[in-house]
Simulated assay, not measured.
Amino acid sequence: MIILDDVCFAYDDRPILSHLTETIEPGQAVLLTGPNGSGKSTLLRLLNGLIFPQLGTYTFDGTVITTAKMRDHRYSKWFHQRIGYIWQHPDSQLFCSSVREELAFGPVQMGLPSEDVKKRVDDALELLGLTKLADRAPYSLSGGEKKRTAMASILTMNPQIWTMDEPESYLDADGLTWLEDFLPSLKAAGKTLIVATHHAGIIQKIIDKEIFMKS
């Protein structure tokens, strides 16, 4: 369970998150909406332990998430196995020398046996139509291919919670059709989805809750 209690966050004294109180239950599909600059990306970064409330608290499965808590390597590793983050711009997420290595990085860090890593990678490559690109460097891919690689790199880690910042960006028509099928399949598998998007149609059919972010 995710609990945000009176959370505030500002950049250079400019309030972005202002007294935000929300509860997200396991298995819910949550839509984040609001104009540009309203704090959707900031909230996703906070949920992933990249920034922290300046006032209020963020509680994840009974633990208050703080700078000190995320410095605990053991806890941080567990936390990042539970929650995955699809960045709006895939170049912010990709850093390995090949697509295959990108997809294997997370499972290897989790300490999975090599045969399990290979199976997860091969399955994700096939599911996202990346098999022919497995040995390509991510920087050489198109925007849509990069976005699918970023999604596949989270899929191989199989987190319980998926946080997504405009997952539709860079995808072509075929990619959007695939995404509209993929998100319900995640929910059907019991995953929690927290999606920031200007195109609510990609998740509209499965939304349990909408959080409107005011500018």
Rank of each mutant, 00 (worst) to 15 (best):
L155N: 04
E166Y: 04
G27F: 01
E145S: 08
I24F: 03
T197W: 01
Y85H: 11
L17C: 01
G129F: 06
P107K: 03
K132W: 12
W78L: 14
I211G: 03
K147G: 06
V195I: 08
P159T: 03
I16Q: 05
A150L: 03
D181P: 13
M1F: 14
G49E: 03
I65L: 07
K146I: 07
P184R: 00
K209Q: 08
D181C: 14
D13E: 14
D13V: 13
K147M: 06
H89P: 13
S98L: 04
S92M: 15
M151H: 03
R120G: 01
L179D: 02
L179I: 09
M213A: 01
I51V: 09
L50G: 06
D135P: 13
A200T: 13
I86R: 03
S153A: 06
L20K: 03
E25L: 08
P184Y: 04
L186Q: 06
T63G: 12
G175K: 04
Q81L: 09
K69V: 10
P138Q: 09
I65Q: 03
A150T: 04
T177Y: 13
A173F: 14
L103C: 05
S142T: 12
C8S: 15
L55F: 14
D12W: 13
T197F: 00
R71W: 10
E180K: 13
E126Y: 07
H73P: 15
L44M: 06
W162N: 02
C8M: 14
L4E: 00
A200N: 12
C96D: 12
G143Q: 05
E25D: 10
D91K: 09
L141H: 05
A68R: 12
P167H: 00
G201F: 12
D72I: 11
Y139H: 15
E168I: 08
M110K: 08
L20P: 02
T149Y: 01
T33I: 03
E166D: 04
T59D: 10
D61W: 11
V121R: 04
V30N: 02
L141I: 08
M1C: 14
A137C: 14
D172K: 06
G49R: 02
S215E: 15
K118G: 10
K77R: 13
L171Q: 00
L193W: 02
L176D: 09
H73D: 15
M151T: 01
F52K: 05
D72P: 10
L50I: 12
S92L: 15
R71C: 13
S215G: 15
T23Q: 08
D6P: 15
